[in-house]
Write a protein that binds this DNA or RNA. Sequence first.
DNA 1: CGCCGTTGTATCGACATAGATACAACGGTG
DNA 2: CACCGTTGTATCTATGTCGATACAACGGCG
Lengths: 262, 262
Amino acid sequence: MGEPTEPGPDAAAGRGRAALIEDGVEFDGRDAALLRAVDAAGSVAGAAAALGRSRARALSRIEALEDAYGTLVERRRGGEGGGGSRLAASGRNLLDRYDRLQAVLAATAAVPETVLDGTVTAVDGELAAVDTAVGELSGLHGGSGGGEADDPGVDRERVAVGDAVQVRIGADAVTVNDAASAVDPDATSARNRLDGRVSAIDSGETVSTVRIAVRAGDGGDADVEVAALITAESVERLGLAPGDPVSIRWKATATRLVAHAE
Amino acid sequence: MGEPTEPGPDAAAGRGRAALIEDGVEFDGRDAALLRAVDAAGSVAGAAAALGRSRARALSRIEALEDAYGTLVERRRGGEGGGGSRLAASGRNLLDRYDRLQAVLAATAAVPETVLDGTVTAVDGELAAVDTAVGELSGLHGGSGGGEADDPGVDRERVAVGDAVQVRIGADAVTVNDAASAVDPDATSARNRLDGRVSAIDSGETVSTVRIAVRAGDGGDADVEVAALITAESVERLGLAPGDPVSIRWKATATRLVAHAE
DNA sequence: CGCCGTTGTATCGACATAGATACAACGGTG
DNA sequence: CACCGTTGTATCTATGTCGATACAACGGCG
């Protein structure tokens, strides 16, 4: 218990693919490309040609999507140019939704995460407290809406006291504060707080990954490293350098608990 | 430009499905269920039977996965009980990775987000500044790794000055501070900061969604509402009530820019 | 040595999905 | 009224995936 999993750039590595689901119909990148092509070509026929796909199939695919998502494409036959199709407003919204989902997925692949093993000590609604090597942390469990249609196995929505879980802390959610000028803990909504020392700074073009070594309070374990994504400007402004004592802070609502396999 | 998109609980709604991708091979919920069943049954044959799937197919699927992800299942034939299979450590890691991805996806579906339309005013590496109705915000663009295998259309990785984009702010990344005790801006790495007034509080069991109305500086537009996920305890501690002036703050690295579809 | 249940491997058919093709319907335009 | 390119609709075929089935190889155990 409380064994820290090595954080690292590859902890969240792995590209992914995401799809929206409504009424059992998946909207994936292929569908997004189709809608975009319709928008660009002004007709389903032109879109199918541009994508090298069958026109009849493209049309029936759009109809299948519309059965689940509502009107996506306004089609008109006959008339000027023989007719044509335009993206409906709701179709554009769906594309935006997909793009944002894609952006989130790309971010989780690109953003380092810190993963700590721990055991649940208390559950209060959507929130749970977890005992880890660096002390007690609190985070959200279950997406309360992320039910899996194709994962009828164990329900991994809820956790219970005593469960072994992984605590996932996205590096983009961790705020680094100067240890000296401690912020009044009552003036902010950020709840999880740890003190540590900067152990390494990975400088990117404009964004740096700062690794903070936190003393493992439990037993004589090695230090746990927590990653934080910080703009290079902030690194400069805070004058961060390896060895500096800092205080890190992140919101419980940005912390996810995942039921650990085993 | 600067038109605020209505934030709301359904802004990020929509269930999703995610899959890891390596070497063009997708690892999805079905594969995760298979690996979990192998772990539980101790044999591929037993797992296939438990899932009602073909044993031969299950085995060949595992082989296909192992071609891309490395050894996942340690298989042994002959011997006690005729042989059997165990999940390899790397297989367990892959399952954990998938579960975390799934948790992130479920979270994005459950967590409200605020979406603002804007135009890019400056690009500096992975970071970009965007002009919106509530002033200039900075955020990350592109996942630099979220390339889509099935989306060969426009490259939506990079943005350029002048591009219309959507700024996505996850409610779980927004920190609420008491307006009175302003935090020293130089002591923290959080970069985006806005002042506003609490307009509504959606109290959940232990987590509340606080909506903060921010005056649209640009023109006479209506106020923009930004959502923040806060633990109920923090709401209590800060003594938040509708009408209260607050200061909100979130990290540029937790802000995503999405190229807007026209 | 034979039994047993498993891992390997190969083959066949069912099924779903996609492309290919053909043709009717539509409604501005010349 | 004929022309045109599009939307609808139907049908056939190719392809890939999955289940079903069959059989050889393996190795501990009685």
